[in-house]
Design a protein around this nucleic acid. Sequence first.
DNA 1: ACAAAAGTGTTAAGCATACACCCATGG
DNA 2: CCATGGGTGTATGCTTAACACTTTTGT
Lengths: 231, 231
Amino acid sequence: MPKTTSTSFYPNQDTFLIAVDCIIFGFRDNKISLLVQPRFLEPQKNGLSLLGGFVKADESVEQAASSVLSRLTGLENIFMEQVGMYGSLERDPGDRVVSCAFYALIDIESQDEKLLEEHKAFWMNINQADKLIFDHPQMVADAIHILRRKAAVQPIGFNLLPEKFTLSQLQALYEAIYNQSFDIRNFRKKMLSMDFLEKLNEVDKSGSKKGAFYYHFKEEKTLNGQTSSGF
Amino acid sequence: MPKTTSTSFYPNQDTFLIAVDCIIFGFRDNKISLLVQPRFLEPQKNGLSLLGGFVKADESVEQAASSVLSRLTGLENIFMEQVGMYGSLERDPGDRVVSCAFYALIDIESQDEKLLEEHKAFWMNINQADKLIFDHPQMVADAIHILRRKAAVQPIGFNLLPEKFTLSQLQALYEAIYNQSFDIRNFRKKMLSMDFLEKLNEVDKSGSKKGAFYYHFKEEKTLNGQTSSGF
DNA sequence: ACAAAAGTGTTAAGCATACACCCATGG
DNA sequence: CCATGGGTGTATGCTTAACACTTTTGT
């Protein structure tokens, strides 16, 4: 059925459903994982899907994405970044739906288990992402691409790790993000030379007998710090 | 007025106008310029606007952007890349409109002057972009950001320059993109060390008495060559 | 002959890479 | 006492940055 504007500054224009799809990354067992959910309506009911929802008339697209995230994880004020818009004609066989993808990085431990169960959501290994429905595999691939670019220059470990973490954990995270291993000395040198880690006096004895010092990130600010060097 | 789906797999959902806005960059007089147009309808009639239009039910968002570009310039098959989606509630005072921005790079000389006149479109210096309506200044700033990132590693001179160009022109282009000057020797060394320029036997005598050799880009292919190194 | 743009190499510094051994401790 | 993961420094190559003079030719 055609949907068009009636009275408006812009009469007789087509209107569209707009969805948001959230690529929610977590880190567990030294692997990047992805929060997914079986689809609860047709078409492709029970197919594996990213967490998503439709944008409502009274909310911004960003708000819609945040609310999907908090509805499913209970987390608020999480850093999310837009991945892009997906607008091909046939991407959703159910209806014409234009979707905007966002990614978020969360600490798996900090989110609400019960909410996940309620929504039948669960964590899936990232390398299974090609099993997702529609164009969701593409969205995930694009999000990973952005994540890698960003992790190279920014303290992107932030929300994927707990508040306090060891350098070994951080390295494992980076190795998972880039899917390759790094020399331990070079990695530590580089991380410490960037100025965002602070060594704590606390030691984690869980990973080794010797124990490893905890670190934490100095400034949350850096997350928003895009240098908008316009002309 | 509320617009919602009636019969659909997704009943009773709100629907939206979707616009595309094109940031069309050109290069003239050693400056980056931007193709703009006075708005022809309310609100903000006659305000300076990016070239845009509404997406139609039977076209993809990308197709909508291409068709805006070709309607205004007569050019087809031009490289365009998505900048992002802009979906705040108040971005367009006329109605709730979610917009997807794209940028394109074209050779100013190659486009159709008459079409521009018909649409009252014209080239504006990039540093005047803050005069644009709505959130268009932000879109332009975001596009420049992407352009700079890309130009650092790819032969992005492509469509902004004519088929044949001198290294001086190429340098002027890069200096315009980054809004800074580069050492001539280092610039030439770097450009030539990347493998995409081919020296022609032709000489351009218009810019100097001595004359400068023309170059052209070897492979058009590189434009699409995203290395999608998924897991 | 001179003005104006084209063209060309070398050196120094900073950054990324490769690489191997000692430390502290719990079991 | 030994197995396990934590922690450390140096030498090399590569990439980037800084820097000044000669060439050509139209006027």
